[in-house]
Amino acid sequence: MLSDHQQNMCFASLLGLAVALAGWQGHRAAAPEQALTGLTGGSYQRQYESTFADALPSRGWSVEAYAALRLALFKEVAEGAVLGRDGWIFTAEEFETPALAEDPVPLLRQARAELAALGVQLVPVILPDKARVHADRLPYRRSAALQNRYAAALDLLRAEGFAALDTRSAMQAHGFLRGDTHWQPEAARAVAEALAQQLGAKPAEDAFVTQSNGQDPFRGDLMVFAETGRFADWVALPLDRITRYETLDKAADATDAMALFADTRVPVALIGTSYSAKADFHFEGFLKSALGQDVLNLAQIGKGPFAPMRDYLTSPELHGSPPDIVIWEIPERYILLQGG
């Protein structure tokens, strides 16, 4: 009987042979007069990738087969992500400048001025990227500019007169999910507690209580780059597990009868990205517990950190009922530094 390792090797060999033959057939059909020269000139690899799928009976099967072969033999995932060590996946945005990146200084100044006019304190919080926190999982080093970006961003905040919270140490213990662009809930909690300490928050005991509701498998947003379909039983990256949390407002439990007469003003507003918007990571709830105050979560998914702030500055939420504090969560990869 073959061992697991031998079975995997047989699978990879047979799969590789099938896909290679199909790729060769597609390459010859596409450009027969260049087939031999392409092998030595380098064009074969490029044409192979673009034509192999159409040469197989089922395009779906061929795509999944090629993805499985690429993952098993070459330790690569689809374009848009980078496979690191031990099955860790990183978005390609951490190795380049994302389209939504911009110089934050103009909006920092605008937001601070407009919020201050309403008696609101702006608190920007820059989150280190996954490639920084888990640099030991990267397949290769990033550029010097990227390696220095977080420290430079903190210097920028200080130069603009903000108290720059260095969240790297808070996130180091738990960090990010292996197959997702986002942080572990426990990392979100550590940042919330560090922020509360910086702000000097002294929450009333048990005002907001956060409790764990167990763990679940979690399919991260980067797993789509490593899909192997029907070959997943042989070649696949493992799923993360995530702890689910719930935050309870104990004060509200005792005052429900007075709710109609209560001040509906929320003292803290949270602006930012999917790090804050997605309930999976529970940043809003951790902030409530750490600050001992209610939080209005106006973070948005898929727009980066700057568009949500621009939206908020003209929103009825701000002008109708200004909070005391606006926390602005900004992932570092969206920060475009001068000369960067």
Rank of each mutant, 00 (worst) to 15 (best):
S43A: 13
V326R: 02
A204Y: 04
A163S: 13
S276C: 07
D294I: 06
L296Y: 11
A145D: 14
P185Y: 08
V326L: 04
L56T: 07
A31W: 06
W88K: 02
A65V: 03
A163E: 15
T255A: 10
D324R: 13
E193R: 14
K250G: 00
W328V: 05
D324N: 11
A151K: 09
G87M: 05
A20Y: 12
G87H: 05
E64Q: 15
T314M: 05
K288N: 04
D263I: 03
S274D: 09
E227V: 10
G16C: 06
I325G: 03
L337S: 02
G340K: 10
Y312W: 11
A257V: 11
A131H: 10
Q172I: 09
P128E: 12
S321A: 15
Y66F: 15
F52Y: 15
A159E: 13
A30I: 01
A65Q: 02
I301F: 08
F261K: 02
R189E: 12
W61E: 03
F225M: 11
D311F: 06
H5L: 14
R158T: 15
D240T: 11
G84V: 02
E246W: 07
A194M: 04
D294F: 01
L56D: 03
D280F: 10
A78E: 15
F231E: 03
R141L: 12
Y48R: 05
R244Y: 10
G175S: 06
T247F: 01
T40A: 13
D324A: 13
G214L: 11
A269P: 00
A145W: 03
A269W: 03
L199D: 04
G26Q: 08
F162A: 02
I325Y: 03
D103P: 01
R28D: 03
L154M: 06
A257D: 12
E186T: 05
W88G: 02
L83D: 11
A135S: 15
S3D: 09
A187S: 14
P331Y: 10
Y150K: 07
S321L: 09
E33R: 14
V105M: 05
A131V: 12
I327E: 02
A101D: 07
T273L: 02
Y334D: 08
L165G: 08
A201C: 12
G38R: 03
Y245E: 02
R178K: 10
K303H: 12
H319W: 13
F283L: 12
A116W: 01
L118M: 08
A257Y: 05
S274L: 07
A257H: 09
A190G: 01
A65G: 08
A279P: 01
F74L: 14
L239C: 03
E96N: 13
A269I: 02
V295F: 07
L337Y: 00
